[in-house]
Simulated scan of single mutants.
Amino acid sequence: MNYFIVKSEPFKYSWQQFLKDKQTFWDGVRNYQARNNLQAMKAGDLVLFYHSNEGKEVVGIAKVVKEHYQDPTTTDERWVVVDLAPVETLKKPITLETIKADSLLQNIALVRQGRLSVMPLAREEFDRIVQLANE
């Protein structure tokens, strides 16, 4: 299993809207590195949902329910989407400030490459964020 973080500005697409929708395709990615991360996602992989700009916090866990396919919002074949479904809302949102302060999370892409919208995580990093949310 692989682990990832996806970022969304809450005013564009929030965790609350995702819960209402029950499933969505993750579109709008126009960065090659983020696209490659979408292409690496496999059905069943777990994904942390991060509110960017407003809040700057991990708020939930989703899972990949359909692997990459052509982004239906563009005719440009370079861009893909995956389908995600929510799994659970974190008991406590984990802020970027908390992540940056945690010695086990110093090297995650969210800290090193803050503008990237889709990022891989090591299992230990994913587990640590979930552990922080449950404390």
Rank of each mutant, 00 (worst) to 15 (best):
K56I: 10
S14W: 02
V58D: 08
E97P: 07
A34F: 01
H68Q: 08
R123G: 08
E67W: 06
F25E: 01
W26P: 08
L19N: 10
K91R: 14
I129K: 06
Y32A: 15
E135Y: 11
L105R: 02
I94L: 09
Y69W: 08
T24Y: 01
T89F: 00
H51W: 07
L38S: 00
V29Q: 01
G44R: 01
A101C: 11
D27Y: 04
L90W: 01
H68D: 00
H68C: 12
H51Q: 13
K63D: 04
H51V: 11
D127S: 15
N53S: 15
H68Y: 11
V82Q: 04
L121R: 09
P72L: 04
Q70A: 11
G114T: 14
V29S: 02
F25T: 07
V82P: 01
V87L: 11
V80W: 05
S103A: 14
F126E: 05
V87T: 10
A40V: 01
A43K: 15
Y32I: 13
Y50W: 10
K56F: 10
A40E: 06
Q70V: 01
A85E: 11
K66I: 05
D21E: 09
D83I: 04
V64N: 00
L116K: 04
R35Q: 12
I129Y: 06
I94C: 15
E88K: 14
K91G: 13
L104R: 13
F49C: 12
A62G: 11
F126M: 07
T75D: 12
F126T: 02
A109T: 03
R123F: 09
R78D: 07
